[in-house]
Computed example of a mutant assay.
Amino acid sequence: MTETKAAQPAGEAKPRRRQARGERRIQQLLDAAASVFSRTGYTSASTNAIAREAGVSPGTLYQFFPNKEAIAVELGERLTHRMREAHGALFTPEYASLPLGEMLDAVVDPMIEFNCQNPVFLTLIHSGDIPGVMTEEHHALHAALQARLEELIEFIQPELSAERRARTATMVFSLFKAGLELVLAHEGEERDAYVEELKASLHGYLAPIIGAETPPRTP
């Protein structure tokens, strides 16, 4: 007796294809929104401008997002998730075991690269009228990264008080954010020069606190 294969339920493959097409369209719209937000700012951007940038009709955009705020929230969530994954992997004991200059290269360069590739992230955060959920997520991300940095400082200099570690981490992030704005405002060799200035500023601030050489290993 010939064995027959069970037939695939009718229509099962189509929803998966539709879902994949839908995700591609969503990403297309988010990429377009990132370009528009970066170019004009969040406040001045419109769904019509985002649809034009994506090469679709406003009706197509509204199939996926009801308004500009929903687009910004989805874009912000995806960027925050990627930033959490990328930056969270940098503050580790492996990096803390490096001399300060090498540690700054290993930590700062990927953070600069992420922000240069995604300038819309700072554009959204600096906008005064972004949806509140984005502000909350950014504060949560900042708090998590600062906590990791404080742990890194404690690993290098365990004798520092918790208060001093917190102040040091706060200053490091403040210096980085100020330098990052200058980096993003320039291109080419000038951008590279400001990256080096940023690292020099961080090195000058951190060296007297945590030392510039390879930290001694605990037996």
Rank of each mutant, 00 (worst) to 15 (best):
E3D: 08
T4C: 03
K5M: 06
K5F: 10
A7H: 08
A7Y: 06
Q8W: 09
G11M: 09
G11V: 14
K14F: 14
R18P: 04
G22R: 08
G22F: 06
E23R: 02
E23G: 05
R24Y: 02
Q27E: 11
Q27F: 04
A33Y: 00
A34G: 01
R39A: 15
Y42W: 03
T43M: 08
A49L: 05
A51L: 01
A51T: 06
E53K: 02
A54L: 07
A54I: 12
S57H: 06
P58G: 01
T60I: 13
P66A: 02
A70M: 06
I71Q: 10
T80M: 05
T80V: 11
T80L: 07
H81K: 12
R82H: 07
R84P: 07
A86C: 10
A86K: 12
L90D: 05
L90M: 00
T92S: 14
S97G: 13
S97Y: 04
G101Y: 09
D105S: 08
E113K: 00
N115A: 15
N115W: 05
N118E: 09
N118D: 06
V120M: 13
L122R: 02
T123P: 13
L124T: 01
L124M: 03
I125T: 04
I125E: 06
G128W: 01
P131V: 10
V133R: 13
E136H: 00
E136N: 00
A140T: 12
A144P: 00
L145M: 13
Q146Y: 04
A147F: 10
R148P: 13
F155E: 12
I156E: 09
P158G: 06
P158M: 05
R165W: 01
A169D: 07
A169V: 00
A169L: 02
K177T: 15
A178I: 11
L180Q: 09
L180E: 11
G188F: 08
E190Q: 05
E190K: 01
A193W: 04
A193H: 10
Y205G: 00
E213V: 15
E213H: 15
E213T: 15
P219V: 11
